Simulated assay, not measured.
Amino acid sequence: MYEAVIAELNHLDGPDLLAPLVSDVFCGNIALVSSFGAESAVLLHIAASIDRSLPVITLDTGKLFSETIAYRAQLTALLGLTDLRVVRPQTDVLRALDVAGSLHRRDPDRCCQIRKVLPLENTLTGFKAWISGRKRYHGGLRADVPTLEETDGRLKVDPLARFTRQQIEAYLDRYNLPRHPLLEKGYLSIGCAPCTVACGSADNPRAGRWSGLSKMECGIHRSPIAARNSAASAA
């Protein structure tokens, strides 16, 4: 469905890739999904420079660090974002599957499904494209992230996929963007508080995510329909 767009724009990165998609190709039908994590300020700044009214979707799992919530408010105000959509898991689903709030301890995959994957899929309904901040230098399953790919009938855009860590740091410095407050405490990648520890390195910044487990991703970067079916089967 989106082969022509991919072929035309796949060689571009950063704002050069994002601008035509936001302002022209998918105007009114594209959203940015942000965790407001360690490097989120770069992509959010690029997007705000193009269109401050671009819908920005963020998942509040109910397990976030208080520092992340404060950072979200700080960046939203600083960048003048006018359409921030804070998405939370459905109350009835939590009551049915995680009433004690401890599901992450015994089944982290299912926890991510009900707190992240399913709420995001519901929110993306109606959008033809969405933007994420994955980068190849994060390694693991992200080592070969494409800048553009069709996933479950939508175009998925990763404008920073080919950026290096040095480029990210240079961008933050150039525009004097605030860092996430947990960086100075040793958190190089920041997710939910119970499943994130302070560690990581330049070669493996996501080492602190689900430390000690084989789990590497929350699931939102897989097919949403497959994840939804998996969650329904688990329930």
Rank of each mutant, 00 (worst) to 15 (best):
M1K: 12
A7H: 12
N10M: 05
H11M: 10
L12R: 15
G14R: 14
G14M: 11
P15W: 04
V22I: 14
S23H: 05
V25S: 01
G28K: 00
G37M: 03
A38W: 03
V42Y: 07
L43G: 03
L44I: 01
A47K: 05
A47D: 05
S49D: 14
S53Y: 02
P55V: 01
P55R: 00
T58W: 04
T58I: 11
D60S: 03
K63T: 08
T68C: 03
Q74K: 13
L75T: 13
L79R: 09
R88Y: 10
R88S: 13
T91E: 14
V93H: 13
L94V: 11
R95Q: 09
A96N: 11
V99T: 08
S102P: 00
L103V: 11
R105F: 06
R106Y: 11
R106T: 15
D107K: 01
R110H: 13
C112I: 07
C112F: 06
C112Y: 10
R115V: 00
P119S: 14
E121H: 15
F127P: 01
W130N: 09
S132D: 13
G133W: 09
Y137N: 07
Y137K: 05
Y137P: 08
Y137G: 00
H138L: 04
G140Y: 04
L141C: 07
D144G: 02
E149N: 04
E150P: 01
E150Y: 00
E150F: 02
L155P: 10
P159W: 03
F163I: 03
Q166I: 10
Y175C: 06
R179F: 14
H180S: 02
L183P: 00
L183C: 05
E184W: 08
K185A: 04
K185E: 12
C195D: 08
C195K: 02
T196E: 03
V197T: 15
C199F: 02
N204R: 11
R206H: 12
G208F: 00
S211I: 09
K215P: 09
M216D: 15
R222Y: 13
S223T: 01
P224V: 04
A226Q: 12
A227T: 02
A235I: 13
